[in-house]
Design a protein around this nucleic acid. Structure first.
Lengths: 351, 351
DNA sequence: TTTAGCACTCCATATCCCTGAGTGCTAAAG
DNA sequence: CTTTAGCACTCAGGGATATGGAGTGCTAAA
């Protein structure tokens, strides 16, 4: 049995009706929506075929049909129309992203929240460097006789600082010297190399001086670690409750817990390979057990040349794929544009 | 009719049973728990009195009793025993807070998450300066000929930085000059004063120079604005679903939405006056409509001398007040201790 | 003042029935 | 061979109706 054109039209109609109503779709509803001039009986026959082929499922004998994951997959790959964003929608996205320049992390966080609001689904975000990052330079600023500010700039143009207090007093010249040592010995090193270098230095330096160096380098290492860590953030988890498939707490709780915990580790399916920039995982296509009944739509975006981020939407398999993909891709493009291409991201700033 | 000692004992028993079971409490259960040697009939009489006095409520004629807000209030004020934290609990709190020094915001965020985990309720956090803050000093670091880093340190020892790119090239001496102007004209000013000062300067400066100054001052103003804003964060909203009063989505959704939105504005009941450091609001004692059926337990803590934070737990009126207050106060004390007393908070660092 | 006893109330749960949407099959029509 | 009308059948969902049991309030005796 082959998949005729008419069968595809019927499948498409069923998916779209089901997305809109969240209830099993009967032959009558299909007859109305898809204006093929065809009787419900014929449609019933076709639906029986589609069920046999695995594109549809039947909750129980006398109910309508529901798309199977395979059915959604076909819909997404072939049948789904291009959804156009309205003027209001694009405008809203633009406004939301067009914030005063903020810290990178915050912009991404904010972006997640906004996307969640306009899509009505939970959203996760992540950003990771494409390669190992290193420190580009150190600066030390004297504050008072026993405190100074260490400023660390990485080669992906992130700048972090920290106020450091010391037990002993320190002169300007000493600070100068410290700065020279740091810049000559620890610039361009990865996290591991830094650790080694610090170990070696311990044996052949004066203890007092070493302690100071160590404080700053330790801070730099924390910065590198934080930057290379793929921390996943989530936003809008409570949106789940708006969708009927999560009206029962038994369904909602596990997923919500999973998404909340997701903030801890990089458990989310960030399997996005570098070349493709939009990816859809439907139901059982998700490797992770907790996501077996959900779909994930994700897109990647670039942050300058050295970092790449992922932003994704999580929802029931009955997700409005057309809308979500349209919004998500617009979003990812905006982010890429926003973070520019240059070596110095324009909104880079930094704590 | 007066509130005899026996009535108090019965009330206490009812509150505690209800906290444990979430179901209306009958005379039989009270007889078992409170070992007064008294028959259920007598207890029934006393319960009738307590109901008349307004301490108890009856969902329907043939059901047990439930504490009223007034009943909880009496319990919290007079009857509640001191809850002792177990070793494991204190240890868990200590571990969780004992992190590598992080940015202030993050420590607070993290603290909220931890408290939420150990209390099983949502938690909100907030930190605000006690007085208007100003910039203590500016530093400028040349990066390349058309970019520099601006470092701003406020008088509450927060340090923020930002990478600024310029259209034109700039020499070291020019940068030096810029730094001098900034430090002589904009140090010690509040947000509003800064704005005025900047306006005045516009008229009597060379346009090129003014543009540069403006860039940096604008950044400083953003920092001040951000620091003085009372941003409220929430954590662990999904914990609500674990409590039977929120098993119905009709109850859960409004509150969850309220708490999520809470991140936007300072809508939460941060009515904590400066002198008291623990505050409990029960049900209708909350002014806010969305919290009418919930209780809020909150405590304040100090961040150095210049800032004060609030951390609070939100839950159903049937909240385990003894446990929550014990944990919360331990938590607030730990935070106060952790952020020290000195002018420079020890873990201050900063983006 | 306390307590045993008892009739009464009323929620929760289970059971049953019924309705209606939807199916699959058959047989006739195109 | 495909389409369609007709029809019997299935089954989830939603009332309506019983039933059990926990709990009360009251009375009368201790």
């Amino acid at each position: 049995m082959e998949l005729t054109n008419r069968k595809k039209k019927i499948l498409r109609a069923i998916v779209e009706i089901y997305i809109a109503t969240a209830e099993p779709v009967g032959s009558k509803a299909v007859a109305q929506q898809a204006n093929l001039d065809i009787s419900t009986a014929t449609i019933r026959n076709e639906m029986a075929d589609l069920t046999e082929l695995g594109y549809l499922e039947q909750p129980h004998t006398s109910a309508g049909r529901v798309p199977s994951p395979v059915g959604y997959r076909l819909y997404v790959n072939e049948l789904m129309g291009e959804h156009q964003l309205t003027m209001q929608e694009t405008q809203r996205i633009n406004e939301a992203l067009n914030l005063k320049m903020e810290e990178l992390d915050r912009v991404i966080d904010r972006a997640g929240k906004v996307l969640s609001q306009i899509s009505d689904y939970p959203v996760f975000t992540m950003a990771a460097p494409k390669k190992r990052i290193t420190v580009r330079r150190f600066d030390l600023l004297m504050v008072e006789e026993n405190a100074f500010i260490a400023v660390v700039m990485t080669d992906n143009s992130i700048v972090k600082n920290k106020l450091i207090r010391m037990p002993d007093q320190l002169s300007d010249t000493q600070l100068q010297l410290l700065s020279t040592v740091l810049n000559s010995s620890f610039v361009g090193l990865t996290l591991e190399e830094m650790e080694q270098s610090l170990d070696q230095m311990e044996t052949r330096s004066a203890p007092g001086a070493f302690q100071l160096i160590s404080l700053v380098v330790q801070f730099a290492m924390e910065v590198l670690k934080e930057q290379s860590g793929q921390t996943v953030h989530t936003a809008g988890i409570t949106h789940l409750l708006e969708h009927p498939e999560y009206h029962s707490l038994d369904k909602a709780k596990p997923l919500m817990n999973y998404l909340s915990d997701g903030q801890e580790g990089a458990k989310l399916p960030v399997t996005l390979s570098a070349d493709q920039n939009m990816n859809i995982l439907i139901g059982p296509e998700n490797v992770n057990e907790a996501l077996k009944d959900t779909s994930v739509v994700m897109a990647s975006y670039d942050i300058g040349d050295n970092m790449r981020g992922v932003i994704g939407v999580v929802g029931p398999t009955r997700m409005d794929y057309a809308k979500v993909t349209a919004r998500l891709s617009y979003f990812a493009d905006s982010l890429t544009r926003m973070f520019g291409k240059g070596e110095l991201p324009p909104g880079e700033d930094e704590e």
